[in-house]
Design a protein around this nucleic acid. Sequence first.
DNA 1: TTTTTTTACGACACACGTAACAATG
DNA 2: CATTGTTACGTGTGTCGTAAAAAAA
Lengths: 91, 91
Amino acid sequence: MELRHLHTFVAVAEERSFSRAADRLRIAQSAVSRTVQALERELGHPLFERSRHHVALTVAGLNALNVARATIETAESLRGAASCNERCPGR
Amino acid sequence: MELRHLHTFVAVAEERSFSRAADRLRIAQSAVSRTVQALERELGHPLFERSRHHVALTVAGLNALNVARATIETAESLRGAASCNERCPGR
DNA sequence: TTTTTTTACGACACACGTAACAATG
DNA sequence: CATTGTTACGTGTGTCGTAAAAAAA
């Protein structure tokens, strides 16, 4: 599991579309498809229902989405933490 | 920034040694060295003091370490969240 | 000399884009 | 037929291990 996979997953979940997620991420749809497949394979559960004419999160996907967002947010905050030359206030 | 980089960084910080971190991660020391360098370059701040005979965290590195651990922990919890077919209790 | 980190180099794995294919409406 | 997601294939970037080099004790 890598942060890049989570970014892709969140984009698809928010756009409810592989193609719109690809546009947002500035990569090809095929790359999005492969990344989501790899993540689903690693987690052992499908994250999306591909039936009908739009993509929908499974229950597992919905649970994963919240955690994925939290993971990304925490990782981003690491940049700020590392830029703090003095001890951060409150630590 | 990727989770693999954070795992490597945490291992070096905990072992206070690139070579012991490499043993723990089952990869070559050179790979550890390159990964940490890449992370430091991306964050724009050195994470370790390489002086003397052992590796020590900088202040930026210490701040980053806590956030890196939190990021990894959150990412790991994603596996459990995705394995939950019914809605998780408390949500 | 022994230990530890960094740099050089060649090989392999992973991710990408283009394009063809499948399925749905 | 139009749109959307998947699969196939060739290419390029990144990471690895081995090995040599540099620095410290």
